[in-house]
Write a protein that binds this DNA or RNA. Sequence first.
DNA 1: TAGATTGTTAATCGATTAACAATC
DNA 2: TAGATTGTTAATCGATTAACAATC
Lengths: 213, 213
Amino acid sequence: MPLNTSEKTVGRLSLYRRLLQELSTASVSYVYSHQLATKAGVTAAKLRRDIMAIGYTGSPSKGYDVVKLAESIAHFLEDPEGQPAVIIGVGNLGRAIMSYFGGRRPKLQLVAAFDSDEKKVNRVIHNIRCFSADSLEEYIVQNSIKVAVITVPVTQAQNVADILVRSGVKGIMNFAPIHLRVPSDVFIEDIDLAISLEKVAYFARQNKQKKEA
Amino acid sequence: MPLNTSEKTVGRLSLYRRLLQELSTASVSYVYSHQLATKAGVTAAKLRRDIMAIGYTGSPSKGYDVVKLAESIAHFLEDPEGQPAVIIGVGNLGRAIMSYFGGRRPKLQLVAAFDSDEKKVNRVIHNIRCFSADSLEEYIVQNSIKVAVITVPVTQAQNVADILVRSGVKGIMNFAPIHLRVPSDVFIEDIDLAISLEKVAYFARQNKQKKEA
DNA sequence: TAGATTGTTAATCGATTAACAATC
DNA sequence: TAGATTGTTAATCGATTAACAATC
């Protein structure tokens, strides 16, 4: 099981697993690379390469065993002991994320939310309890949290990130539109909604220009 | 102004512009490539290459003119006539996105929301009016909408995408965890929150394994 | 066997990086 | 001029694609 799997490959494996789970609930036992690849929007060769990378082997006559491949990917992606995660910032976006991930996956759950607004403290939103931002560091250390989601305003994001890193967090999903400065051993996934929408608008427009040309 | 600018380059240009606007409000007139690059989290050489690509030229003695470069990027990214956008799906995530983009940029605004739940129709949420999903196609055609955001449940996403494409939409920001099938001239930006969080968890864990090794 | 698959290697493509000349 | 920048080209790196051998 190689440690140097690329970010893109990991993302695709996550996608394959979800599609395999759907097939599994539909009582499909085997799937060919091109069938799964079509659902995932990738080429069959790329999918085979990804699956090969985690050491799983298909059958030339039957294709891939749906249940076994899903388990194999889960074994690759998931910590068998589970990975609790926290979210900091219970605004509109934060609450939407809490709703999105509330009890979604047993091995990867949002277990606590934090906000500096005392009115939100001790409320339970989408089954996740909200704590005071003052208790963030203590909570992370005591519960050995390694994964966090940042949905605070941009002005507070770096400060929150510093606390997270200091407390031992090693992976951050960041919605604040700022490049967070963290040590190289901390993984950051930036989700910049403004940039994404601007990209969509740009390419939607380019398309128009092409047609007119 | 080349049409074949890569997706990544467009995203970075969007980021540069935001940082330039911040500098502008702080009354900074000139900025060197390495200063701006540090804020953006890229190398100075890459930033210079990106800026070169849109035909803007800096000064070896002063660096880049903050206001002029921001205008130059805006001219590259934005439609001078403005690009209205719509959102389909007024659930938790949809409302958060509406809050996020409500009146953010004059040239790129969410002008309408759509939902199949009649209880939401005609309500105004974060300054955006909610319409019936039945009127989606008519609205898009009449208002020449080219940009849309999909925040409906996964089961409805492809159906919505089909309506959007049929009505003339050319760019879609898709939050539903499904690979949408659209013509090649329609740009799709997939934002899969589950995959993103799973990636973060994976690399947070890898880090741990490395340290232990 | 024949056929369609899978695993694997070689070729291609593109983006990034590094190095250098041009400029104020 | 000297120095630090910018614009530009060449080298590198990695991912993707294409081609082919191995397998059931």
